[in-house]
Design a protein around this nucleic acid. Structure first.
Length: 923
RNA sequence: GCGGAUGUGGCGAAAUUGGUAGACGCACUAGACUUAGGAUCUAGCGCUGCGAGGCAUGGGGGUUCGAGUCCCUCCAUCCGCACCA
């Protein structure tokens, strides 16, 4: 073989790896572990496009590198195979989603194998596999059987709680539970019947059924989680979403709010993602206090982060949905309030969000009493107060809050200044905390820091409130009215949910005749015939959301075939957590938060050993599509080239990027593309049809999808891998662009050529390498090591190119240089590396070679040239051995003849030596 | 509005703790070879100037012997959150 025949080489080694199980990972190794994982894909019908492998290539490079470094590497791949598209397809065609899913996975696996990833395919998992979702259901059962104990600050078995109830009631219990949970004694507990006890326990369980206001999407026929709704539209499909009260399974993620927040401090994640999670959790520290309502005996609870402004509170505002609205409204105001509430309820989330400028609200007729100064203040309702946040009521301080100021100004309410340093509050509010309080009773003359404890003490002494931490995050809705998801392992007896027995897992999806809701509006599972627990009790008919299966899958990879546990103790103790997790940032508040929640729960249960699942996270940027356009002159079949389009009235149309080369349209191919274009005419510029371009998301409908298969066929997988890395920093978003791919292929050809003589025969020399050759090699090794350690893969590719350019110049074909270079290159271009490694006489895979370390002796023997500046001006250069001590260098510098010329007789004041960089002399 | 990021040639980009800005690749120009190919090799390629040199990292200011990098300020683009009390 004389030419670099990548097609032949790549097929050969992919087969070799598969047949030899080269990348098998087992937990019993004596080596240190490294767990590199990608976010597993949803296997869509469109197959992979060139954007998908970007993150996989990066994690594969790290995996191969870590193997060379002597680590036992776990590098698996699997499929998040429950999901909407397969179900939508099933609705249209009647084909079972399992069949579609299976076909799509086959295609994905084939495409992934073509790219030469070092996955251990024996570990593949699929969330829709009953052997897998058995354990998703099992974890659900553990959550159902647990509550959150605030005393120990961790989850605990519900059985312990029941025991406590039997002995002492719930007075001593410190647990996360529903707001309205009443206090009861042991006696009262025992008096309750089974149904009442069950209802009570549901208030404590980490997963529970409750009537909740949910995001209902009529078009999709299901509820959606908050993170699946963007701007009032569904993330998938972009359908409108409405608020609806429904009985749903919920996950008590709020119990973990504080730990989810604190945990962010320990993990090496990109700051934007951490910030998004902090934002989502939305912690705010403040106080909760009750305002009594005049003549009613009712109290309005408010939450505030600015208790210090309480003397400036001149009115209260309730959310229109607040439960007290009905009770406190006076007869005189009743009609007006009713009208306002109706209007507010009928406004969609979306309208409410877009219309934030308009001030609206209604007086209830009621007055509350400010407990600090006994002032009588009016109570309003307004939709700028949200029912779902805090207590659904606020104390309004118009001098310190702009929205309150706007409201007060609009309705002519009193504005009381409370700080002496406050700017004029005639035109706007001033939210600063500077100065000393005025008009403020017990805190007059104090500053913010001194005032707060005084106010909190007052609250507590009078029993009207307390300091409180509030979180924006709500419990997660866990039900989906869908077929293609995990069945919830629950049946109902007299309306009370019961878990099925563990031995009965998995509860498999029943067969149904159509994948649509029933006539009575029940979820598709309601169509299953004879699907009853013990032939009499109805099962839960909703299924789990998409995030259920992906919230623990990294444990299943450790031990995917285990039928006794979700993973064995040994496997979990060995692999522990994911060292490197690569995936898109779109999962910031969904998958990544839910996974951390479930992991913390499993940790509390003693089932796993690390509290945080993903130690290091990298978000790879999306590769965008580069769409091409043709311009059709209106009402004609004539297409005008991009440069001339402004002379005509045209319509821009997407054209398949595969029939465009370098923005030049292949006219023949275009005429054959679609029947209606067969007789198309063209107006050309310079004899060419130039297409317009736009950067968009890669998608079928935009005809800008580039499949990796074609690239692999034409330029090879190694070229594609290196090129995707070369394109720029991993985290960055960048358009797909084939210009430059030739440069990478050229590099691989040159590397191949170094091992071959003029006739194209394999030829390496055993001669000893020269210093120059060694320097080139070691520079490369050092740089590539550093690059991989800091996930800067694009610069490595440049380093390889420089090295091969240098060696080509030196005509170096020496084994002592090329052999280590092959090893270093192998994570990036594994196929060509294996081929050359074999030619060099090795029988095992290059992955088993040990990584060549930067050699101490080499450093000591070789010198480094320091540029020397005098007062910032570059003057000369002096060479030193790499590890020369600083004092020696300083001595040598002042004696250097070249330098003395520039010092002009003056002696240096200061000599600054930056290691390996520069020497700076200050006169 | 709040929070986060980014801004360097014709293009993708590099510069790791402040230390010779533009490595490497693409495109482009000139040349060599030739079985004419979308192959290979050589040289050039930020702006300006004949030249030595001067000017350049979104704009302005500062710290420093020295700033793409640090500080202040303004501008632009992208992303996230958004009546959160």
């Amino acid at each position: 073989m004389s030419e670099y025949n990548f097609n032949h080489i790549e097929k050969k080694w992919q087969r070799f790896w598969e047949e030899n199980n080269t990348f098998k990972a087992t937990a019993d190794s004596k080596k240190p572990k490294y767990y590199a994982m990608d976010m597993f894909p949803y296997p869509s019908g469109a197959g992979l496009h060139v954007g998908h492998p970007l993150g996989y290539i990066a994690s594969d490079i790290v995996s191969r590198y870590k193997r060379l470094q002597g680590y036992n590497v776990l590098h698996p791949m699997g499929f998040d195979s429950f999901g909407l598209p397969a179900e939508q397809y099933a609705i249209q065609t009647g084909q079972h989603p399992a069949i579609t899913t299976e076909e799509n996975i086959q295609r994905y696996v084939e495409q992934l194998k073509n790219l030469g990833f070092s996955f251990d395919w024996d570990l593949e998992v699929r969330t829709s596999d009953p052997g897998y979702y058995k354990w998703t259901q099992w974890i659900f059962m553990q959550l159902f059987n647990s509550y959150y104990n605030l005393a120990s600050d961790k989850a605990a078995p519900i059985a312990e709680l029941v025991q406590e109830f039997e002995q002492h009631g719930n007075a001593q219990v410190k647990a996360v539970c529903d707001e309205e949970t009443p206090v009861f004694s042991a006696g009262e507990w025992k008096q309750m019947d089974e149904q009442q006890q069950s209802e009570m326990l549901l208030k404590y369980r980490l997963t529970y059924v409750a009537d909740a206001v949910v995001n209902w999407c009529p078009a999709l026929g299901t509820v959606l989680a908050n993170d699946e709704v963007k701007d009032g539209l569904s993330e998938r499909g972009g359908y409108p979403v409405e608020r609806k009260l429904m009985r749903q399974w919920m996950m008590r993620i709020t119990a973990y709010a504080e730990r989810l927040l604190q945990g962010l401090e320990e993990i090496d994640w990109p700051e934007p993602i951490k910030e998004m999670q902090r934002n989502w959790i939305g912690k705010s520290v403040g106080a909760e206090m009750a305002f009594p309502v005049e003549n009613t005996g009712e109290k309005i609870k408010v939450f505030t982060t600015r208790l210090d402004t309480v003397y400036g509170a001149t009115f209260l505002v309730l959310a229109p949905e607040h439960e007290l609205v009905e009770k406190i409204t006076t007869n005189a105001q009743r009609q007006e309030v009713k009208d306002y509430v109706t209007v507010a309820k009928n406004r969609s989330e979306r309208e409410r969000m877009t219309d934030v400028k308009t001030v609206s609200g209604v007086f209830t007729g009621a007055y509350a009493i400010n407990p600090y100064n006994q002032e009588r203040i009016p109570v309003y309702i307004a939709d700028y107060v949200l029912a779902g946040y805090g207590t659904g009521a606020v104390m309004a301080v118009p001098s310190g809050d702009q929205r309150d100021w706007n409201f007060a100004t609009h309705f002519g309410l009193t504005i009381v200044p409370i700080l002496d340093a406050q700017k004029s509050i005639d035109t706007q509010a001033d939210a600063t905390k500077e100065g000393h309080y005025i008009n403020s009773g017990i805190i007059n003359g104090l500053a913010y820091q001194e005032a707060l404890p005084v106010l909190v003490k007052f609250l507590e002494e009078h029993g009207i409130g307390k300091a409180k931490v509030n979180y924006r995050m709500r419990d997660a809705v866990f039900s989906r009215q869908r077929y293609w998801g995990e069945p919830v392992p629950v049946y109902f007896k007299d309306g009370i949910p019961h878990l099925i027995k563990e031995s009965e897992l998995p509860l498999e999806l029943p067969k149904i005749d159509a994948y649509l809701p029933t006539e009575t509006g029940e979820p598709p599972l309601g169509r299953a015939v004879d699907w009853k627990y013990e032939d009499q009790y109805p099962y839960e008919l909703s299924t789990m959301p998409g995030w259920a299966g992906s919230s623990w899958y990294w444990y299943r990879y450790m031990d995917p075939k285990n039928e006794e546990a979700f993973a064995s103790k040994e496997a979990i103790n060995y692999w522990r957590d994911v060292d490197l997790y690569i995936g898109g940032s779109e999962h910031a508040t969904g998958h990544l938060l839910y996974s951390r929640f479930w992991n913390k729960f499993l940790y509390d249960m003693g089932l796993v050993v690390e509290e945080e699942p993903f130690k290091k996270l990298i978000n790879q940027g999306m590769i965008q599509g580069r769409s091409n356009f043709v311009y059709r002159i209106k009402d004609s079949n004539t297409f005008v080239s991009h440069g001339l389009k402004d002379q005509h009235d045209t319509t821009a149309l997407h054209v398949d990027v595969n029939i465009v080369d370098n923005d030049v349209l292949d006219l023949k191919a275009f005429q054959n593309w679609r029947p209606e274009y067969a007789n198309a005419n063209f107006i050309l510029e310079d004899d060419k049809y130039i297409c317009g371009i736009e950067i968009e998301k890669m998608s079928k409908s935009k005809y800008n999808v580039v499949s990796p298969d074609d690239i692999v066929e034409r330029q090879g997988a190694d070229t594609l891998r290196m090129y995707e890395m070369f394109l720029g920093p991993l985290e960055q978003f960048k358009p797909w662009n084939t210009h430059g791919m030739d440069g990478v292929l050229k590099f691989l050809k040159r590397f191949w050529k170094l091992f071959h003589d003029n006739k194209g025969d394999f030829a390496v020399s055993d001669a000893a390498p020269t210093a120059e050759e060694l320097k080139s090699l070691h520079k490369t090794i050092k740089k590539v090591e550093e690059d991989i350690e800091r996930f800067s893969f694009n610069t490595s590719v440049s380093t390889f190119m420089i090295c091969v350019n240098e060696l080509t110049q030196l005509k170096c074909n020496k084994r002592a240089i090329l052999e280590p270079l092959t090893i270093v290159l192998s994570p990036y271009a594994p196929h060509i590396a294996e081929e050359l490694w074999q030619m060099l006489g090795h029988s095992e895979s290059v992955s088993f070679a040990s990584y060549p370390q930067w050699k101490e002796e080499y450093l000591a023997e070789n010198s480094f040239e320091y540029p020397v500046s005098v007062n910032g001006k570059m003057r000369t250069k002096i060479s030193f051995a790499v590890d020369t001590p600083r004092e020696e260098m300083e001595k040598a510098v002042v004696q250097d003849e070249q330098l003395l010329k520039f010092l002009e007789g003056k002696s240096p004041k200061k000599i600054i030596i930056v290691p390996n960089k520069i020497i700076n002399v200050v006169v």
